[in-house]
């Protein structure tokens, strides 16, 4: 196992840091490319998110006159930093297990809530009415999806008997992945509804809906600050999908390089099937529709799964 001296390494280089950023950007690039192909277009080069980032770094960040400047500029920094930390908390089965000093599943859950909070703060700090609407929508959506998420994690933890990610992975290595366990399918279904909302993709990109609130909280951002948000969102994809893999599908070969490849392959499959195809094949929900949807399906499913696991 890794030593605590390698913690900075884990946060800054692998599996967080540079590796996670590169991975996130690559996943975004693949997502855009496949979306384009499905829509009958050629689409941007795979490295397009990276180009965008370099471009944003060379632009000027403009702070609106009515914005609270420290908050306005601090928000993206905190958001990106929290996701950098979170990326180091996501295990890669057979390759990397996060040091307990860094935190466990509960810390990861808290960190996952940070981007949404950061977006809310950014939205209200920007002083634009669209930011404010984005704020209230983000809050409503978060209220809706956090409950099912906590229940899903609780279900898994109850089944394994531990909140430690290492234990969850070890359990599945022995007993087989939860993905193939019908008892866990309600929890899986609830998780599948959760992550599009957390990643802010259609049909749940309501807080940032371009045609309704002009990208909401991000409306007033430009240049490097906007770039940080892009980094945050790329990292979030890696973290959320990685969490899903850890919770439901961690089976992997036990050796280093193959383990990484297997993890990458799973991430790509989840990104393309779970994100790209989903987001291009439907339209956006209204916030009240999304709210009701979450209260109806994922919540019920996650409660059901908890009951099943508790009774089993």
């Amino acid at each position: 196992m890794l030593q605590s001296t390698t913690i900075p390494l884990a946060v800054l280089l692998f599996p967080g840091g540079v590796f996670a950023v590169a991975l996130g950007l690559m996943l975004k690039g693949m997502d855009r490319r496949l979306a384009a192909r499905l829509q009958g277009r050629i689409g941007p080069p795979l490295a397009q998110p990276f180009y965008d980032l370099v471009k944003l770094a060379r632009k000027r960040t403009m702070v609106p006159d009515i914005a609270a400047e420290p908050v306005f500029l601090g928000a993206p920094l905190i958001g990106a930093a929290s996701m950098l930390l979170a990326a180091a908390l996501v295990p890669i089965a057979g390759v990397y297990t996060p040091d307990p000093i860094l935190g466990d599943l509960l810390v990861l859950l808290y960190l996952l809530a940070v981007p949404a909070v950061v977006l809310m703060v950014a939205g209200s700090a920007s002083g634009s009415p669209f930011g404010a609407i984005g704020f209230s929508r983000e809050m409503a959506l978060m209220l809706a999806y956090e409950g099912p998420l906590v229940l899903v994690v609780a279900t898994v933890a109850l089944r394994v008997g531990s909140f430690s990610i290492a234990d969850i992975i070890a359990y599945q290595q022995v007993h087989g992945a939860f993905l193939f366990d019908p008892m866990m399918w309600p929890a899986l279904a609830a998780f599948l509804a959760f992550y599009p909302a957390n990643l802010g993709i259609i049909p749940f990109d309501i807080p940032e809906a371009e045609t309704e609130v002009l990208e909401g909280p991000l409306l007033e951002y430009s240049g490097p600050a906007l770039g940080l948000f892009k980094v945050m969102s790329a990292l979030k994809a890696v973290v959320v999908l990685g969490l899903g893999i850890a919770l439901f599908w961690p089976s992997a070969p036990d050796s280093g390089a193959l383990g990484i490849l297997a993890h990458l392959a799973k991430l790509i499959v989840m990104m393309l099937l779970g994100v790209t195809v989903l987001r291009v094949s439907m339209g956006r929900m209204r916030i009240d529709q999304a709210f009701h949807f979450f209260l109806k399906w994922p919540l019920a499913l996650s409660v059901l799964s908890l009951v099943i696991v508790a009774c089993a």
């Binding site: 192909r37 009958g40 277009r41 689409g43 291009v280």
Partner: peptide
């Protein structure tokens, strides 16, 4: 899910970009 047909068509026929 009529739309999936269109996706399949787009993938099979390739991009229509000039």
């Amino acid at each position: 899910m009529n739309f999936l047909k269109i996706f399949v068509r787009n993938l099979v026929n390739g991009p229509s970009t000039v």
